[in-house]
Design a protein around this nucleic acid. Structure first.
Lengths: 154, 154
DNA sequence: ACTTGACCTCAACCTTTGTTGAGGTGTCAT
DNA sequence: ATGACACCTCAACAAAGGTTGAGGTCAAGT
C-alpha cells in the first residue's frame, strides 16, 4: 500500500494512537468512512487522521460521540474538507467550551464560598440548582458532561 | 415523621430533586447512609441533603462517583460534619476544578489556532497529545471527564 | 378496618463507549 | 506456495450510573 494517501487500518491506528477496535466502532457509528480494496480490507484516506484528532479532542472535553457525529456531518462529503470547513466546527466548539469553562468557574467559586458557609443546601446555591447552567443559549450539549445523570424525572 | 431532623426517602427525593432510585443507588454505593424505623423504612438526617448537593455538584463537573465517595469518606463518621469539614473537601475540589478549567482553556485555544492551520494532526498539537493533560500533579482524577475513553492500549 | 400511597428488595434492563474472542480470509516475503 | 501477520465479521462482555418492574409491606386518613 502506497504511502501517498491510502492508509490501512493498522496504519491509521498506529498514527492516531487509537485502537483498531475503536476505529471500527467509529466507522460503525458513522464518524469516519472508508472504502474497501479487492480483498474487503478498509482503505482510509489521510484526512481520516484529522477527523480522528477532532473526535478525540472533542471527547476529551466532554462532548458525546453523537454530538461529534452531528458536527462532522456538516463537513462536505463530496470533497475532502478544507481548512475553512474545519474552522466552522472549531467555532461551534468554542462556544460550548466557553460555556463549560464558565460553568466550572462558577462551581469553583460556589464551592469556595458556599460549601463552608452552609448555603450548600438545595434551592439556594447555583452550584446545585439543576435547570440553570448552559441554559443561556440552545447551543450546548444537552448533557453538559457525559456520564452526568439524565435530568431527573421523578 | 417529625419535620425536625428526620426525613423519609420521599422527602429527601423531593427536596433534593434526586430520584428515589438514585438515592437507593447512592446508599448502596456508600455515599450516603440511613437508619431504619421499626417497619424497615429509611430514615435520613438532614445533613444528607448537603451530601447529596455535594455529590450532584461534583458529578456535574465530571468527577466520578467513586472519587466522590472517597472524598466523602474523609468526613467524620461519628458526628455530623461541620462547616470546616466541608471546607476541606472544597479545597480538594478546587484544585481539580482549576486543572480542568486550565485544560479546557488550552483546548479552546488550540482549537482556534490549530484546527484551521492544519496542525490539528497527530503528534504535534497538545490538543491531541494524550499523556499530557493533568499530568502536572498526581492530584486529579485519572479520567479527566467521565465517559472519556480509557487510555489506549493497542 | 380498610384503602391508598409511600416504601421495601431484588433482579433485569438501559445507554455509552468501546474491548475481547472466535472463526475465517488477505497479503507479503521468502 | 507456504508461513506469519494483518485484516475481516459477528457476538458477547465490560463499567458507570442509574431506571423499571414485580411482588410484597407499612402507615395514615376515613
Amino acid at each position: 500500500m502506497k504511502p501517498t494517501d491510502q492508509l490501512s487500518i493498522g496504519q491509521v491506528a498506529q498514527r492516531s494512537g487509537i485502537s483498531v477496535s475503536a476505529i471500527h466502532f467509529y466507522e460503525r457509528e458513522g464518524l469516519i468512512f472508508s472504502t474497501r480494496n479487492a480483498g474487503n480490507q478498509r482503505i482510509f484516506t489521510r484526512d481520516v487522521l484529522r477527523r480522528l484528532a477532532f473526535i478525540r479532542a472533542s471527547q476529551r472535553v466532554g462532548i458525546a460521540l453523537t454530538t461529534i457525529q452531528e458536527a462532522l456531518d456538516e463537513l462536505p462529503k463530496k470533497r475532502t474538507p478544507k481548512e475553512n470547513d474545519w474552522e466552522k466546527l472549531g467555532k461551534k466548539w468554542h462556544k460550548i467550551l466557553s460555556a463549560q469553562i464558565d460553568y466550572l468557574m462558577r462551581v469553583r467559586e460556589d464551592l469556595s464560598t458556599c460549601i463552608g458557609c452552609g448555603c450548600l443546601s438545595f434551592q439556594r446555591c447555583q452550584l446545585v440548582n439543576p435547570e440553570d447552567s448552559m441554559s443561556t443559549e440552545g447551543a450546548g450539549p444537552r448533557r453538559l458532561l457525559p456520564g452526568t445523570p439524565r435530568p431527573d424525572r421523578n
